[in-house]
């Protein structure tokens, strides 16, 4: 698979079809891959793709780096299913011209939650990592463990519906169609069974761990505002300390800003250095958007994003009669 990807990328670059390809290369840590920018065919052999490729490379097409949009050059992006949805969203939101990107889909089996791997390793440092046929092996000093990839997948992947790109130019292998996933709403259904008080308590538990480093926001493909509302200081809307209400307002408002735009890639949760459960709210908002407006983010780049659209005869049962 990886050889095919490298060959395709080499051809694209050599033929001048793209100026740059964004993908992943092996990271310096055993459980990490890191985004890489390939601009010549010789470099293409650096590309990798496995369950450690947790970043959403679409981010680099709108973030400060702006290597992609620079001078409107044509750029290739190697994408998992969720990353492809981000690109479709960008096209729908007119952040990227469809003609300027070449979407290269790769078959995704889900990505790791390194916290889960570390938990299984029981405190022993993972020095080597390999995967084959849905099995993952980690090695280190006094450590040689093999387990099912399913046991350590990111929460977003366990609930994934579209593992492979829906809109793409090239696909390595055969793209699978989206399929229903009964895990998708499991966490929110479970949460909704709790009383209002218990829910609030859980939320406080989750967000009291936040250190306000904004890693979640900065790796989020849907968070591309030039200036985030938390960075505004005239007026300053929310306090900057990790005080619980300020922290929660940051997360809730960020969540509303990405409602109907979140592709549930889970990059935020994997980026969080404090291990916050960030997907719960995201998933809830996505379900509300889908149920009320019949909109799923990033599936059709021709469709108007839900929160920028309306219908006159919409359900309004939440409004006082």
């Amino acid at each position: 698979m990886i050889e095919e990807l490298r060959e395709k990328v080499k051809k694209l670059l050599a033929g001048g079809d793209v100026e740059l390809v964004i993908g992943w290369e092996k990271g310096s840590q055993p459980l990490s891959s890191t985004p890489v920018f390939i601009d010549s065919p010789e470099e293409a052999d650096r590309l990798v793709f496995d369950s450690t490729c947790g970043n959403n490379p679409a981010v680099y097409s709108t973030k400060d780096a702006r290597r992609l949009v620079k001078a409107g050059k044509k750029v290739g992006v190697v994408v998992k299913g969720c990353d492809a949805r981000s690109l479709s969203l960008y096209v729908a939101e007119k952040q990227v011209k469809r003609d300027n990107i070449v979407i290269i889909g790769v078959p995704c089996r889900g990505v790791l939650d390194s916290d889960k791997v570390e938990e299984l390793a029981g405190g022993r440092e993972v020095l080597e990592y390999s995967e084959q046929d849905g099995k993952i092996t980690v090695r280190g000093k006094d450590l040689d463990l093999t387990f099912d990839a399913k046991d350590v997948l990111s929460a977003s992947c366990l609930a994934c519906i579209y593992p492979d790109a829906k809109e793409y130019d090239i696909f390595i292998g055969e793209a699978r169609d989206g399929k229903p996933n009964k895990e998708q709403n499991a966490a929110i259904d479970e949460f909704e069974k709790l009383s209002s008080e218990e829910r609030w308590k859980r939320m406080e538990e989750i967000y009291s761990k936040c250190i306000r480093c904004y890693a979640c926001r900065n790796v989020c493909p849907s968070c591309y505002c030039n200036e985030c509302f938390v960075d505004q200081n005239d007026p300053q809307w929310i306090g900057k300390t990790p005080e619980i209400t300020d922290t929660m307002i940051f997360h809730i408002i960020r969540n509303l800003h990405v409602a109907g735009r979140c592709v549930e890639c889970g990059a935020c949760e994997r980026a969080c250095p404090m291990g916050l459960d960030l997907l719960l709210l995201n998933r809830k908002a996505a379900r509300e958007v889908e149920e009320r407006f019949g909109y799923v983010t990033g599936i059709d780049s021709g469709e108007k994003p839900a929160m920028a659209d309306f219908r006159e005869d919409e359900k309004q049962n939440f409004i006082m009669g």
């Binding site: 509303l256 409602a259 509300e288 958007v289 659209d309 309306f310 939440f318």
Partner: peptide, 10 residues
């Protein structure tokens, strides 16, 4: 209305 429709349940 769309905005509140998401805000309220959230």
């Amino acid at each position: 209305r769309r905005r509140f429709a998401i805000l309220k349940p959230l």
